[in-house]
């Protein structure tokens, strides 16, 4: 009898755990990646990132720019995984983090092969495209000038063959919209590739 009561109580309590609306449960499992929210270089697909990363924090510790931050429990199962906030501190592609990852979650790749995302220019915000002023900040700071970014009639253009998504342009962009968006943002396009086993 006692055991029965106990088991019922346990079942009831664990039921309560899953009760709060499905939206919240979805948030618990949803990826923290979004615009300007990127994984460090060489990251595997987001599909297996939460499982493969063991949250050892070594990438966070070796990052000399403190670009990589560890997420906390508010990110659900992604707690402890590394994230780069491109508009705050971008990745300067020093490639130290990929060399220390013990699980292969960050694969050993070179600077040029890095695809953290793709820079996308918002032409409604960009001073150049709006023809308000001559600004070429993004062009000046890009580590792969003339390859990843070029000026076409003094207006910046991104080339996805070479853009690594490091976010240096986003960080440097002088335009900030009311919602915190920059005129050039990094979209995490490549993170959602399906893994082939």
């Amino acid at each position: 009898m006692k055991r029965r009561v106990f088991l019922k109580a346990v079942a009831g309590l664990s039921g309560l755990l899953f009760l709060p609306c499905p939206a919240k449960a979805g948030k618990f499992f949803s990826s923290p990646l979004a615009r300007n929210r990127l994984r460090p270089p060489g990251a595997v697909s987001e599909e297996i990132f939460a499982g493969k990363c063991i949250r050892c924090g070594r990438c966070v510790e070796v990052c000399p720019y403190k670009s990589i931050i560890p997420l906390d429990i508010r990110s659900g199962v992604y707690a402890g995984t590394p994230l780069v906030l491109a508009e705050k501190v971008p990745c300067y592609l020093c490639m130290k983090c990929v060399k220390v990852c013990p699980t292969g979650t960050l694969q050993k790749i070179g600077q040029e092969e890095t695809r953290m995302g793709l820079a996308v220019i918002n032409r409604h915000l960009c001073y150049n495209w709006q023809e308000m002023t001559l600004c070429r900040t993004c062009y000046d700071v890009c580590p792969f000038k003339e390859k990843a970014i070029s000026l076409h009639e003094l207006k910046p253009l991104i080339h996805d063959d070479y853009c690594t998504g490091c976010g240096i342009c986003t960080h440097a962009c002088p335009v900030t919209a009311d919602d915190g968006q920059k005129a050039v943002n990094i979209e995490s396009l490549y993170a959602n590739e399906t893994v082939r086993w």
Binding site: V44, G51, K52, C53, I54, P102
Partner: peptide
């Protein structure tokens, strides 16, 4: 690498 964490990483990633 901690054995349990490593084992779980292998089990999930299967690589």
């Amino acid at each position: 690498v901690s054995p349990l964490e490593g084992l779980e990483s292998l089990l999930v990633a299967k690589i």
